[in-house]
Design a binder for these strands. Structure first.
Lengths: 214, 214
DNA sequence: TAGATTGTTAATCGATTAACAATC
DNA sequence: TAGATTGTTAATCGATTAACAATC
């Protein structure tokens, strides 16, 4: 076959990559220039072989006996996640959750550029939070379309989540990052990532009850 | 061997259980009394066999041809996660993120009882947010010990996360739910669940960049 | 050179999916 | 009864871990 081979990294690997980026960013400040998977594994409590496999998905090559060039590895990791490009995003719902996300200024280094926020509360319209201006929700789909915004972040209450998602899809976003505690339905071509606190809490409470049983 | 067999559910299964609980809670309101895994799978977009396997971890039995008794299944699921018991928790860091979590009133139905919150900002001490009183952080470990609080929720900035975690461990919590964007270290007997937004964002941005490549 | 580390191929482990007898 | 559904055992799939030759 002549088509370019599609390399699909396992989702668990992709979820670990930010850990490496965080570590390398810190080590870079300490002027580390080369480091081995053994060292990375030690720092993060992983197995070296897993680190090696994870890094392999970026296609970067290291130097036997030495390890990887830190800058090169960091760039490769950030490129793999597209964190070396800024992608425009809109955030909808400037309540406590939305403010928490907007306040999370690290997003720039994660390649996310929150262009504007939206809310249905008339008192918030026209004000700014953390430098981001707040617009009325009924402008949402039109502005997504005109500014060709690719990512929509949903931080509204559960009851509004589907309504907002539909507006985002109508406007033409390619991906939705949903923080509302409600499952939403979107067409299959839209990338949907949910952050459901209950999933994480379930693991915690179940483990805790098992521990108490012993 | 005479010891009781230890049944360990897969983590992916545990993370799906809240979805079932949410669905059953909704269907209960519609007066549904019995339902099959086929139906559950349809509603959630899962495969029926997966639902059947997931439900099996609770040990509940259904009725061939009919399905499961809704109340019985709901109770079994909530019991499995220990969501039918209230576990006391302290939350530390009443910034935007902490307020978002405190505002998430669903926690009671998730078996979490946030007894008190803590902050280092002297202006917040003594005030309440969403009915939860705010105490100074230097009271944290003492109060954890005296009230035998089992869960600590960390919503402070990254730079304070390890300090707060250490205080929690000193006080004697059994589990930590960490929302700070920083890896923290705790003794191995402490249950640690991290909610790292960067993990979820990594999956989203990587998929998005792959889509753009096509 | 000797030995640490990479990169690749193989083995293992665990979760998901399939198959099917038992049941009402 | 016929057929839908459960519950269990087996097969498949995918991720992790192990093994080891190649390299500097």
């Amino acid at each position: 076959m002549s088509e370019k081979e599609i390399i699909t990294a396992p989702i668990p690997t992709i979820r670990r990559l930010p850990r490496y980026i965080h570590l390398l960013t810190r080590l870079k400040r300490d002027n580390v220039e080369v480091l081995s998977t053994t060292r990375i594994a030690e720092e993060l409590g992983f197995e070296a072989i897993q680190v090696r496999k994870d890094i392999a998905v970026t296609g970067i090559v290291g130097k036997p006996k030495k390890g990887y060039d830190l800058d090169e590895l960091l760039n490769a990791l950030r490129h793999f996640l597209n964190w070396d490009n800024n992608t425009d995003a809109f955030l909808v719902g400037v309540g406590a959750l939305g403010k928490a996300i907007l306040g999370y200024s690290n997003f720039k280094s994660y390649g996310l550029n929150v262009l504007a926020a939206f809310d249905s509360d008339i008192n918030k319209i026209g004000t700014k939070y953390n430098g981001v201006e707040i617009f009325p929700v009924d402008k949402l789909d039109d502005l997504i379309q005109r500014l060709r915004v690719h990512i929509g972040v949903i931080t509204v209450p559960a009851s509004e989540a589907q309504f907002v998602a539909d507006l985002m899809v109508k406007g033409g976003v390619k991906a939705i990052w949903n923080f509302a505690p409600r499952a939403i339905k979107v067409p299959s071509e839209i990338i949907l990532e949910n952050v459901h606190l209950s999933q994480s809490l379930a693991v915690l409470t179940h483990k805790l009850s098992q521990m108490n049983d012993e």
